[in-house]
């Protein structure tokens, strides 16, 4: 597995551009500031606009339970909230890989 770390403070445009140029399988987004409801769906939207809707988007950070269904409806495939064990995240990607 290879991880392209784009650094802190990336805009949705930055993230989508990097994902396309690096031809990634998945994008992991982290937000602790509460901006996830705006930024996560924006990444999904921009990917679709660039005909790259096949790239899996997952999110994590401080995400209230109430927001999870809304994010999923917006196209975020999985949300790993506070306290998610590493093993849960790993098994999600293993499954996603087999499904691909």
């Amino acid at each position: 597995m290879e991880v392209i770390y784009t650094g802190l403070r990336q805009t949705p445009e930055d993230i989508v551009e990097a994902a396309i140029q690096e031809d990634v399988d998945a994008i992991g987004l982290s937000s602790l500031s509460g901006a996830h409801m705006t930024l996560f769906p924006e990444v999904v939207r921009l990917l679709k606009k660039r005909k790259s809707g096949d790239i899996v988007v997952v999110g994590g950070g401080i995400i209230p339970e109430d927001d999870v269904p809304k994010l999923k409806r917006a196209g975020v495939k999985a949300v790993f909230g506070p306290g998610t064990p590493l093993s849960v995240i790993v098994s999600f990607f293993e499954k996603a890989d087999k499904g691909a």
Partner: peptide, 23 residues
């Protein structure tokens, strides 16, 4: 202060999108 303020951006700047008043 919220993130845009901490980074020296006004609320209506592009960099501030989605971050208004959240933390």
């Amino acid at each position: 202060f919220d993130m845009p303020t901490l980074y020296g951006y006004d609320t209506d700047e592009h960099e501030a999108k989605g971050e208004f008043g959240t933390c």
